[in-house]
């Protein structure tokens, strides 16, 4: 688990209205109960809490193929590193 995983998991947990337990990298995205608004809100919190800028454009659908929370964390990491 990378250093950034834990804070990202915390942020995702706050938006996972469909979960009763804390999410892990293996949790399916479909179980989180998040929608397209949640992605924008999650990115906002990542930027505010971690002090980074995430060059995310909703029109480029960067999260189109995600299956698990691990995929979401990796996608967020890629965007953060792109900056």
């Amino acid at each position: 688990m990378a250093d950034i995983d834990q804070p990202l998991l915390e942020i995702i947990k706050d938006h996972a209205v469909g979960l009763t337990e804390a999410p892990t990298r293996e949790t399916p995205i479909a179980d989180l109960g998040i929608d397209s608004f949640s992605i924008v809100e999650i990115i906002y919190e990542v930027e505010e809490k971690l002090g980074v800028e995430v060059p995310f454009n909703a029109n480029e659908n960067p999260f189109g193929e995600m299956k698990s929370v691990g995929d979401l964390i990796d996608a967020l990491n890629t965007l953060i590193e792109k900056k």
Binding site: V40, I43, N57, A58, N59
Partner: peptide
């Protein structure tokens, strides 16, 4: 800008590479 839907460069309606 906070909504992450603005185009990075220009407006490209109906073009595959449109981005906002």
């Amino acid at each position: 800008k906070a909504m992450h839907i603005l185009a990075s460069e220009t407006c490209r309606p109906f073009s595959k590479n449109r981005n906002g």
